Computed example of a mutant assay.
Amino acid sequence: MADIESATRHGDFAGDLKAEHERRNVGTLERKLKSRHVQFMALSGAIGTGLFVGSGQVLSLAGPLSAFLAYLITAFNVYCVVHSLGEMATYLPLPGAVPVYAARYVDEALGFAVAWNYWWQIAIGVPIEVTISVVIVDYWPNAVPTAALITLFLFAMVLVNCLPVRVYGEAEFAFGAVKLTTIVGLILLMLIVTLGGTPDGERIGFRYWGGSGPG
Rank of each mutant, 00 (worst) to 15 (best):
Y139W: 08
I124M: 07
P127Q: 02
G48I: 00
V130E: 04
Y71N: 04
L85G: 11
V114P: 03
G54N: 06
R24Y: 13
V144I: 15
G125N: 06
I150N: 05
S133H: 00
E108I: 10
D138V: 07
N77C: 14
V144S: 08
E129V: 15
V137F: 07
T90L: 04
V130Q: 01
T49Y: 04
A42I: 13
I124A: 13
A113W: 14
I150W: 07
L51K: 05
D107K: 13
G54D: 09
V160I: 12
S44D: 00
V58Y: 01
P93M: 00
V100Q: 13
W120P: 01
Y139G: 15
L154E: 13
G45E: 05
Y71K: 05
Y71R: 02
T131W: 09
I136D: 10
G48C: 04
A75R: 02
K32G: 04
K32M: 02
V144E: 02
M88V: 12
Y91I: 15
P93V: 05
R36M: 10
L33A: 05
V98S: 09
A113H: 07
L29P: 03
G56E: 07
F40Y: 08
V38N: 09
L152A: 15
F155K: 09
L85T: 10
I136N: 03
N161D: 09
V82H: 01
T74L: 04
V114T: 11
G48L: 08
G96L: 01
P95S: 10
V144A: 07
